[in-house]
Design a protein around this nucleic acid. Sequence first.
RNA 1: AGAGACAGUCGGACGGUUGCGUGGGGCAACUCACGAGGAAAGUCCGAACACCGCAGAGCAGAGUGCAGGCUAACGGCCUGUGGAGGCGACUUCAAGGAAAGUGCAACAGAAAUAUACCGCAGCGGCAACGCUGUAAGGGUGGAAAUGCAGGGUAAGAGCCUACAUACGUUUUGGUGACAACGCGUACAUGUAAACCCCACUCGGUGCAAGAAAUGAGAUAAAAUGCUUGCUCGGCAUCUCGACAAAUUCGCUUGACGCUAUCGGUAACGAUAGUGCUAGACAGAUAACCGUCUAAUACAGAACUCGGCUUACAGACUGAACUCUUGCA
RNA 2: GCUACUAUGGCUCAGUCGGUAGAGCACGUCCUUGGUAAGGACGGGGUCACCGGUUCAAAUCCGGUUAGUAGCU
Length: 110
Amino acid sequence: MKSIYRLKKNSQYNYVYKHAESVADKNIVMLYCKSHSNPTKVGFSVSKKFGKAVRRNRIRRQLKAAVSSVITQVANGYNVVFIPRCREEFVFDDLRQSVVKLFTKSGLMQ
RNA sequence: AGAGACAGUCGGACGGUUGCGUGGGGCAACUCACGAGGAAAGUCCGAACACCGCAGAGCAGAGUGCAGGCUAACGGCCUGUGGAGGCGACUUCAAGGAAAGUGCAACAGAAAUAUACCGCAGCGGCAACGCUGUAAGGGUGGAAAUGCAGGGUAAGAGCCUACAUACGUUUUGGUGACAACGCGUACAUGUAAACCCCACUCGGUGCAAGAAAUGAGAUAAAAUGCUUGCUCGGCAUCUCGACAAAUUCGCUUGACGCUAUCGGUAACGAUAGUGCUAGACAGAUAACCGUCUAAUACAGAACUCGGCUUACAGACUGAACUCUUGCA
RNA sequence: GCUACUAUGGCUCAGUCGGUAGAGCACGUCCUUGGUAAGGACGGGGUCACCGGUUCAAAUCCGGUUAGUAGCU
């Protein structure tokens, strides 16, 4: 995923947390809000409940790969934050399906 | 054959599709190279480096504590000494001072740093008991005058002797810790990871340190500031300033790794050759498959090194290592 | 990344310069009342987060581990 799609500043995250609407299923919570950024920007947040750094990194990477496969089909002008829900293990296909599901549910899919 | 002890190594490899970070090439499309660990972890020590209008003195405070060596330095490492453990190979120890002083030692016990309860013996007394001597025996306790044997005695006692133990000391050996032999003494317990004494070390803060460029602005006060406390001394008087946001440097060639030779018991050092091996800033090193295989452990860099501590599936190596059993 | 601190009964806390762990609330039984509350009496409940060390003796002193909290950013 290229760096233009990424959410970078702490303040941007805070803005999303304050003003966002949320969609969720059993795997992921997705927060999104409108912004002026032209390609839609995406951020990830994995909490310390998931375990130590290796495990959190793996979950973040899987999520990142799932999102980057569909990022080109998403409408412009949004900031999005993904938060995975507490699980033992994630299967990549499940993650990908729920990402697609959440995008269509929130109406961001073109 | 079984059971151990010591010192180390590795801790996945290859291929496909789609991607990410840094650097190089290219106008661009694109392409080439490299891309987590032995602990990257804990942040427990030590440095390097940077800043604090030079860090000066004293007190306070903190740390270390057998000897010699190694190291940039260390609370680290090596080799020894002494104690403890093991049949042994070997392991392990915050291992200075209790005769400088102070504190503490509950309960039990007659008595806890000082003592006579029972007992033993002598004297007095009809007796009950009293006075005196005594630490061999009793019970208490973690700790009660050195343990045991013989002599000695009214009963006893290092009071005397042999052996042992502890301390001091002459000589000899060793750089030294210390050891051996001889001589003398028996000086009333433990605790310093209680205060303390002695010797040595320590200014503070940490890359979110800081530097540069751009620079909206604020301030003109006699006191304020100078980065753990207090006192003295010294210095400065123009500076402050990135705030929910932003750039470049610091940033990776280093007390570096590997190989060989030499010196050293070793830690380590010297010389020669050779290699360049992450450098991000919401933070790359991945996602999905296939083959091999025993391949599944613990675990993810954020300024950098040297250690320590903690976690760890499995695989393997070395030195004529040790013990037990069997056979020759 | 850096720096401090905490862990004691079901809950909130004392005890922290060593000597066998307490208070309040809660819980149980009894008294009191026509009954309940309040009040009174008695009682139960703790490997002092975990693992080692120093000491005769550790909640306390020293080292390590695990959770959690706060601050800088």
